[in-house]
Design a protein around this nucleic acid. Structure first.
Ligand SMILES: [Mn+2]
Ligand SMILES: [Mn+2]
Ligand SMILES: [Zn+2]
Ligand SMILES: [Zn+2]
Lengths: 151, 151
DNA sequence: TGATAATTGAAAGTGGTTTTCATTTGCTAT
DNA sequence: ATAGCAAATGAAAACCACTTTCAATTATCA
């Protein structure tokens, strides 16, 4: 749990006039810990309840939405039916995800070549490109081995 | 409506032992027409009902699933909560979509630089990469104008 | 022309997410 | 401190794209 992450987020909420409730602090605390990555609302709720047993799942949903809107969190889609959340990358720049189809393990990578593709496309299409979603699906070394066994 | 597209699809279904029902023919007819692109199940159902008024939405869902499994159709995700379908690109190779955040208009593009990114990543991560999802979000020229007016 | 298994459509179910609404609570002005 | 009030919370119900169930229908083939 990184203190500056937590304090910056509180600051941001205060500045915009949102109330600092124990529930919101608990959600922030979770996502400021380094091991909280790509969590679903349900996963976040389960984790938070260990410290804040009375918090409702609905409040977690609302906090995730609020924090995403003020860029404290970032919504990630793995196309598996769940919205997932991680700390907003901020100045560190965005990254993408390589998800194992076997075990769900996630590898992050930051050097994406999409900007140059986008610049070419902006010329040919006349669009102003505002963002992109990229998800790679594959198999991690362990799951490749397991697939071979099954044959 | 391209006849060879339709006939090839019928052939494919027959070969695999699926029955050729009027409902399946109607779904195929729709997706073999050139203007049917990135349709949701509901949109497909609405279009098909003009010729086949009694077809059920459930049957459309089932046909889309079946046709996707035998690679007659291709499932596309714009991360807007709907599964969308288009003709399977086949030998023509896959393409990606640039979607306007204002009006939903879609531009397709085929030259994607992701393969080289994938090859680099396969080395560094040890994953075997099986596929990727890429969606670009932007604003078309008309919607850029409209946004400027609103200021 | 039947026999048979696949297919269909209506209705009910599923599951992640959102809305409703009565109650509680953080914040501010006194 | 304290009261007043808008914002936030939690339980329950609603939402909605999609899937499953099941009885009736139908394409296919002997
Ligand atoms: Mn990430
Ligand atoms: Mn397309
Ligand atoms: Zn794996
Ligand atoms: Zn537009």
């Amino acid at each position: 749990m990184q203190a500056d992450c937590f304090d910056n987020a509180l600051q941001k909420l205060r500045k915009r006039g949102f109330k600092l409730t124990p529930q919101r602090r608990a959600v922030l605390r979770l996502f400021c810990s380094d091991d909280a990555r790509h969590l679903t609302a349900q996963q976040a709720h389960d984790a938070i309840r260990e410290r804040e047993p009375s918090i409702g799942l609905v409040t977690v949903y609302r906090s995730l939405e609020l924090f995403t809107s003020v860029e404290i969190l970032h919504r990630v889609k793995f196309n598996d039916g769940f919205d997932r959340y991680e700390r907003h990358p901020g100045a560190a720049g965005h990254h993408h995800h390589l998800v194992c189809a076997g075990c769900g393990q996630v590898v992050e990578f930051g050097d994406c070549l999409i900007r140059s593709m986008e610049q070419k496309l902006e010329k040919t299409s006349g669009f102003c490109i505002e963002g992109h979603w990229l998800e790679l699906i594959g198999r991690c070394p362990e799951c490749r081995g397991r697939a071979k066994e099954d044959n």
